Simulated scan of single mutants.
Amino acid sequence: MTRPMSGLVIFDCDGVLVDSEPISLRCTTAALNSFGYPVDEDDVFDRFLGSSTASMVAAVEASLGRGLAPEALDDLRREILDAFGRELKAVPGVARAAERLDRPFCVASSSIPERIRYSLRITGLLPLFEPDIFSATMVVHGKPAPDLFLLAAKRMKAEPARCIVVEDSIHGARAGQAAGMTVLGFIGGSHIRGNVARERSHSEKLIQAGAAMVFDKLADLPELVREFSR
């Protein structure tokens, strides 16, 4: 029987590894309004950041009392990916931070596998994380349920209590806490940083959701991982 490794860092993808949230927020807000679900970008940020498309669609359909056309959702996915191809960049410091970690790491994201790999590929990060990439499509219940993080730990042969989750979303922080893992809340993405009110409010909500602390520079991550692993 293989012994569990001593520790593991689990990265969320959107808003932590790739600066995708401003693009997704913009495209999703426009699409939801076109579906007859009136929201602005702050609403989408507060309600759906970190949740899977399936979870978001279920909430919207329940509110509207009708289903959304599958082709409309396909159009939204294509629009987001097209925008990624033109605009998406890695969050500053990702590669250097990952290379300095003293333990294995992986990705566990609410996005579908194709989108995760596309995002990592066009930002040059895919070789750093492949093949240790886990998607909410691999479990029955996505974030805020702990299933995805527990799956990642199991596949990576790590004890949940020795895992550190790096998350920017409330759903993700709750999932990490429910999995019995240490959560570090990241607020360095451009969808949070620079907006003082949102940064303060989101930091407080991450702590309330279970994050042990919040930080805004990935350069600080290796030392934080060592500190929270003592």
Rank of each mutant, 00 (worst) to 15 (best):
P222G: 06
V139W: 10
P38L: 09
D12P: 02
F228Y: 15
L101R: 15
A211E: 07
I133A: 12
F215C: 13
G7N: 12
C106V: 05
A161D: 06
P127F: 13
G194A: 05
F105V: 05
D42R: 14
E227M: 15
L68G: 08
I187W: 06
V9C: 00
G50P: 07
R226Y: 09
C13E: 00
A179F: 10
L150M: 04
T123L: 07
D19E: 07
A97C: 06
G180K: 01
L25Y: 02
N195G: 07
R26W: 05
G67H: 09
T29D: 07
E71Q: 15
G15D: 02
E21S: 07
Q177R: 15
M1L: 12
E79W: 05
V214S: 13
L120M: 08
R66A: 12
F11V: 01
K89S: 11
V91W: 00
D220V: 09
S52E: 04
T29C: 09
A178M: 06
I80F: 10
D132Q: 14
D147W: 06
V214D: 03
I122Y: 08
V39D: 02
S6Q: 12
L221W: 10
T123H: 04
M156V: 11
D40F: 02
F45M: 07
S119I: 03
V9T: 03
L184H: 02
S6G: 15
R103D: 14
V16K: 03
D46A: 14
L17Q: 11
A98S: 07
D14R: 07
R66W: 04
H141Y: 11
P22T: 11
L148C: 10
M138E: 15
S229M: 05
P222F: 06
E159Y: 05
P144N: 06
E61F: 04
G67F: 08
D132N: 15
I80V: 15
S51N: 12
P222T: 06
R100I: 14
E41A: 15
A31Q: 08
S6R: 10
L148R: 05
A179S: 11
F149S: 07
A69H: 13
L218W: 01
V39N: 03
R115N: 07
P160K: 01
S63D: 14
S55V: 08
I170S: 04
I187V: 15
V196Y: 01
I187R: 14
L49P: 00
A54G: 08
L101W: 00
S63G: 06
A72W: 08
G210A: 01
R155L: 12
D19H: 08
P144V: 12
F45I: 07
K89N: 08
